[in-house]
Design a binder for these strands. Sequence first.
DNA 1: GTGGCATACTTTGACAATCTAGGTATCAGG
DNA 2: CCTGATACCTAGATTGTCAAAGTATGCCAC
Lengths: 110, 110
Amino acid sequence: MAKNKAELLQGTLDMLILKSLSLGELHGYGIIQRIRQLSDEMLNVEQGSLYPALYRIEQKGWVSARWDIHDTGREAKFYKLTRAGRKQLETEEASWDRLVLAITKVRQAT
Amino acid sequence: MAKNKAELLQGTLDMLILKSLSLGELHGYGIIQRIRQLSDEMLNVEQGSLYPALYRIEQKGWVSARWDIHDTGREAKFYKLTRAGRKQLETEEASWDRLVLAITKVRQAT
DNA sequence: GTGGCATACTTTGACAATCTAGGTATCAGG
DNA sequence: CCTGATACCTAGATTGTCAAAGTATGCCAC
């Protein structure tokens, strides 16, 4: 199992995707890179995790997608955070904070 | 889904169980109560999650179990952290910290 | 010009962990 | 006696992530 790379916990991926899109429109492959980069290489999202997650998230209306050609001249599917997505990001961040707090409390017990 | 209660993320339960056993021998039902109490009612572990988890953990040698009768005069299965379990707890805590750090970094991005 | 690598997307199947919901049994209190 | 808390167990459904495969394009080195 994971050595230097932290493994993702189920439920955290959506938040990471939404967060990275909150910094600006981006395509799938770019999301993976952005997350890796922002986390100092600690988080590595697999393509097989990302694309299904994006599909899920799009279905829920948290992002909108469109095909476009970017600077490199290649086609890519660009995702953009919707208003609902921004709201969802806040919700997920809040519940992440709550979880971290709760676990911290348990861990502080002596 | 969760309102005031934070939902458990997959992978955190083992750590919570090991941690609560690190405070002393305890039986299954008591583990649930201890986690709930230590987390200020934020974490609620379902029985259907706990018992399979305990079985799993016992198989891995992180805890040892024995039936006993406790103060209330009732039978219960008491679990105790083994040396390997203590080691595992450290490992899980470290990787939890790493994950929290990584996610924090992503979230701090502007 | 072709071979390899990074980019970019998709799909399938396996796997693991949690939850829901059911079951059993004992004990205490009203 | 009945209910609720305690105490354990199990089956099945659900979900999310991952591994592994596939397709296709553009770029660079040789």
